[in-house]
Amino acid sequence: MSGFLEVALLLSAPLLLAAAGELVLERSGSLQIGLEGTMLAGAFTAFAAARAGTGPYAALAASAAVGAGAGLLFALFAVARRADPILVGTVWNLLALGATGFAYRLLAGETGSVLQVRTLPADLLGLPWPVLASFLVPPVLHLLLTRTRPGLRIVAAGEHPEAVRAQGLSVVAIRTGASTLAGVLGALGGGLLVLTISPTFVEGVTAGRGFLALAIVVFARWKPLRLVPASLLLGGVTALQYRLQALGFQAVPYAFFLALPGLLALAALAVSGRGGGAPKALGTPAP
């Protein structure tokens, strides 16, 4: 697990999963800018489950379950009650940061010692298989959104929600389903982070990855297959930082590499702009 490529893949997979979930939600017409909070909840759940003695796979499953709950809860606020999703998402991050910090303190006590958890075994090409499986999510989503009835309904809810409504379908139900899937994938991303490359929990362990995933969705112009190169780029840049740190590189301040993913995402947005590809009804309340 020491090679640059392995680390890059390990760091790209959580971004990819979170961005894939967000993409489905945004294609359905809603958006969750509290993705960072959902990832954080998934990361903490995996950590807490693993500390409680479950195996790493069960810990990952626990993340997914909490993610489903988080997705449903978000949909209750921003879809069913039609509160402004941006406001809900902003407060969501605050809640997740506070709640995981609170729960971590209860779990770890006041010692502040670092508690490690057992990571997923590297069983496929030197990587845990869920990491590699993450890269199958975009093609599956591509097929889902272009070839299947539920997928086409999700897209229709994001483009012409009134037409969906006129067909007698519930836009609220469609977006709630999309939000649940987004919650599962976002929390899995957070869980994967803890169960592979950073096997402990510190407050804010996701370190802005949820925000980067939001930018990845825009940069990918809401197309699932384009998520892969964008995630690999940002994951690779982060891996470079790990690599240089491990080599004891002092010439380039490592904070520059902390800033680099954010700067790259900004630059990518500056180049691509909001451009085409955004769902027409993105962020509008369900009819």
Binding site: I33, G208, F211, L212, F256, L258, L266, L269, A270, R274
Partner: peptide
């Protein structure tokens, strides 16, 4: 036409770094 929500959130990360 980049939403301020997105750019300001990313600038938070850059500021922290």
């Amino acid at each position: 036409k980049v939403p301020a929500v997105l750019s300001t959130i990313l600038l938070n990360l850059v500021a922290a770094a």
